[in-house]
């Protein structure tokens, strides 16, 4: 059976915004044929109590997959220490992190509806807010902005969206 849901919203509704400030955006490249070894590496990192705020990866179509990890400062030092022993990684790759703020929000069927991320990006673009990363997965959107800009980004989004009381 197919269920159809319809939306008429002059302002897109969200359940609210979560802002996390002062995170590190770390990235590293792996060969596509090294995904199994990457999986083992991630499990070993988890064994060292390394937690993430967000993680994503994408193949570049040229035999590499690039992984991005958003973590707190306390986790970054573990990543550096542990990653330096990882033969898959050049020792300095995880170290090349950027200090960022992250805004995370979700709403009803965000993953099934066109235009939600565009609506969000336009709200930020109105103030020339740089967006260093964006992840849309299930009904959740993560937006990564430079450190120190998160409060302004959250306000821009709060003005654009409706948060039902």
């Amino acid at each position: 059976m197919e269920t159809i849901a319809m939306y008429w919203e002059s302002k897109v509704r969200t359940y609210g915004f979560q802002l996390v400030q002062g995170l590190h955006l770390c990235r590293a490249g792996f060969p596509m044929d090294g995904i199994s070894a990457l999986g083992a590496f991630l499990q070993r990192m988890a064994g060292n109590d390394l937690a993430f705020r967000a993680v994503w990866a994408q193949a570049d179509g040229k035999g590499q997959i690039r992984i991005y990890l958003l973590c707190d400062s306390s986790q970054l030092s573990k990543l550096r220490v542990f990653g330096s022993d990882e033969p898959l990684l050049a020792s300095d790759r995880w170290a090349a992190s950027q200090l960022v703020d992250m805004i995370c929000f979700q709403g009803p069927h965000f993953g099934d509806r066109y235009g939600i991320v565009d609506y969000s990006l336009k709200a930020l673009a109105s103030a020339k807010m740089p967006v260093w990363g964006a992840v849309c997965s299930t009904a959740t959107i993560h937006l990564v902005v430079p450190a120190g800009r998160g409060d302004q980004a959250k306000q821009l989004l709060t003005d654009a969206f409706e948060i039902p009381k």
């Binding site: 690039r66 991005y68 099934d112 066109y114 990363g133 849309c136 997965s137």
Partner: peptide
Amino acid sequence: NMAYMTAAGGADA
């Protein structure tokens, strides 16, 4: 609709 998206700035994809 984009059912899924990941993006990062700079020279990435």
